[in-house]
């Protein structure tokens, strides 16, 4: 007699990660709500200012560097595409709209996630594995209020400012290639920018960067805060893995949110 076949494991294999995903999504949402609820509490101002320095000021040169090269590439690509239709005069508008609507908020967010976000995860993760978060708790200092809320506010302030820097420097990058190197008229370049760009484009770009700020900070702080619960390592290995997954998750969040927001804003 043949032994009875084991029931198919496929649904179970599908179900376990699905439950884990929903569990983690719920946990992240509660974490975010808890952090938002504690934004207005005493002694937050100095921590917010310190975090604006870390997230904003320390990321300035990276953003400027990426901004200028992005603008220069857009200038080059845009020129050689537009020249085929005899409309190279539209280069300023093409560069500015690409940057203000899409590339500025998205690339800034990705760069800040890589630089400041990874540092956030590593710092909070190390605090977790060295009992510093437990120490805060026993001193009756809420760790989320102390560590996460100021970072969220600082990101909400710093992300749009860095995005603005990225946009302006990117437009100058486009000017360098389009006007200085390829000879488009300078007045036409800026006239087209002024003509094509509306306040809706600018505010839409800023709305995106605020959303990205919340998502990136949430992903990075959450992964660091939960580093001790990871199953793929313990101690410093868990912090390393948490940092990697925070940056990956931030990038996924930014690109997914970008699609959703673009479809809403358009």
């Amino acid at each position: 007699m043949q032994p009875a076949k084991e029931p198919a494991r496929f649904p179970a294999n599908l179900g376990v990660p699905a439950i884990r995903f929903i569990d983690e999504a719920g946990s992240m949402l509660l974490f975010l709500l808890s952090a938002l609820r504690r934004i207005v509490s005493p002694h937050q101002f100095s921590k917010i200012v310190a975090q604006i320095y870390v997230i904003g000021a320390q990321s300035f040169f990276l953003i400027a560097l990426i901004g200028i090269f992005t603008g220069m590439v857009l200038g080059l690509q845009g020129y050689y595409t537009l020249v085929q239709f005899g409309s190279e005069g539209m280069l300023g508008a093409a560069v500015a709209l690409s940057l203000i609507r899409e590339l500025g908020p998205v690339l800034s967010a990705l760069m800040i996630a890589g630089r400041a976000g990874s540092a956030m995860t590593a710092e909070i993760g190390v605090m977790r594995i060295t009992d510093q978060i437990d120490a805060l708790e026993v001193m009756d200092i809420n760790p989320i209020s102390y560590l996460v809320s100021p970072r969220i506010v600082a990101s909400i302030i710093a992300f749009p400012m860095l995005t603005a820097v990225f946009d302006v420097i990117g437009i100058l990058g486009g000017y360098l290639t389009g006007v200085v190197m390829l000879g488009i008229n300078s007045g036409v370049y800026f006239y087209r920018i002024e003509n094509a760009t509306t306040m809706t484009d600018v505010s839409g770009g800023f709305a995106k960067s605020v959303a990205f700020a919340i998502l990136v900070t949430l992903a990075c702080c959450y992964k660091g805060y939960m580093a001790h619960t990871r199953t793929d390592g313990a101690g410093p290995v868990a912090v390393g893995n948490a940092t990697t997954s925070a940056v990956v998750l931030s990038c996924v969040f930014v690109l997914m949110a970008d699609y959703v927001l673009t479809s809403v804003l358009l």
Binding site: E123, M127, D131, A135, M139, D140, I141
Partner: peptide, 30 residues
């Protein structure tokens, strides 16, 4: 718990703060 003092294994001092700031932290925050 605010009135319990705890010494963790390696001190668990916050690395971003000076010794003085660490010691004064419960007073500053609470």
């Amino acid at each position: 718990r605010r009135r319990m003092g705890v010494l963790f294994q390696d001190g668990a001092l916050l690395g971003a703060l000076t010794l003085g700031e660490n010691v004064g932290l419960p007073l500053t925050e609470n």
